[in-house]
Design a binder for these strands. Sequence first.
DNA 1: AAAATGGTTTGATGTATGTCAAAATATATA
DNA 2: TATATATTTTGACATACATCAAACCATTTT
Lengths: 237, 237
Amino acid sequence: MSTTAHKSTCSSCNLAELCLPIGLTAPEMQRLDELGIQKRSFLRSDYLYRSGDKFRSLFAINNGSFKTQVLHEDGREQVTGFQMTGEIIGLDAISTDVHACEAVAMESGMVCELPFNKLETLSRDIPSLQRHLHKIMSREIVRDQGIMLLLGSMRAEERLAAFLLNLSQRYATRGLSPTRFHLRMSRQEIGSYLGLKLETVSRAFSHFQEAGIIIVKVRAIEIINLADLKACINSSC
Amino acid sequence: MSTTAHKSTCSSCNLAELCLPIGLTAPEMQRLDELGIQKRSFLRSDYLYRSGDKFRSLFAINNGSFKTQVLHEDGREQVTGFQMTGEIIGLDAISTDVHACEAVAMESGMVCELPFNKLETLSRDIPSLQRHLHKIMSREIVRDQGIMLLLGSMRAEERLAAFLLNLSQRYATRGLSPTRFHLRMSRQEIGSYLGLKLETVSRAFSHFQEAGIIIVKVRAIEIINLADLKACINSSC
DNA sequence: AAAATGGTTTGATGTATGTCAAAATATATA
DNA sequence: TATATATTTTGACATACATCAAACCATTTT
């Protein structure tokens, strides 16, 4: 973890709302305190964990955003996801007790640290928590399958359209505008995520703009026509 | 599920060994019977489940092998994995209670059906089972990240090399030869998995053979030089 | 405010992989 | 065994994306 981040105990943090949105009873809510959840702040480009780090906790993003990436010996790196408020990261580490990827902050914010062995213990007592944990892990698997489909069988502009629509939908879920948002990541990072070079990403943005589908002002995106953007994914654009 | 598959109760199937290789005590083993596990046979090209099917069970492959694939509206399909003996499939469905992909048998064999709600209940009582279930799900996430790296940043021959090495390693784990094996999947299926066209896969096989790294007789593969094959992944081949 | 830095856009050109097609080979069916 | 069908291989050619390079723009530093 970054050296600068400061900690504070957080017995009544907005965890239940943000991180674990499940119907817990009042006494069950209290038991969440057993987790000894700590809230931590982080700054842009802080590492939340690195590949190879011993696994102790999952992290629920309170606010701010991360990218996760896997590294290859030869230096290649692949962005595997962009995570935002309310999402849980670190699931890959459960498998081997060691983090398989690294999480880098794209902007400053806060996380709740969820000690995993305590979470496991508690989820044996609270079935709805257990169920929720399973769903979160399964959702990650489904998300990954979607990325495989994207990387394995879509062309550049289809990938970018799918990416923008995914962001749009996630912003909407958070009560933010689904049509106007600010990208937290660079063209290079988008390219890594989508299996493209940054120039290709930039050209695809420009093309969407020329087609009147979106307006791009560097990182500020406005989607003019959501339907057209969706149509792009079906090859026709 | 395929109509032809026949069922049989399976209280003392080799589940603990094959599917859930964890250190259970004798009484815990007995409790696995509570799951009411059924063994089912399947034939080549049977569907174990289809996209959209209601989720009830995970499946542990007793013997035989499957491919899993996700479908896109426009008919595109992407193979997301090839599963063999001892592996568990269906994890993606936990998220929404509906199967997100489909599993098609590549050869006939047997599966153990593991009713998921019973598995959840039981895993609350048996911590080692709970832990194992979590590890299985997390392992799937790590596997998926590896495929993203492959699809997002490797070239055709690197992808095929990585694929062959993965198969080699999995056969070795099962006590089979890591250097001589028979592919259960077509060039087209390999191509879908690796984000390539079948012709490209075929050419990459031919090139490896010309380079003296492997011998290919259609689906029969012999790896002559594992080290060279590994070297291929680092761009140099 | 000027200079420096890092990210983005755009153009010209190269290349890995896709597409189309035909032959070769394997597998299934009669 | 002969015939039909599906899969694989190989070649010729097309194309989407990568690469290289320069200009542009935004942000930070001095």
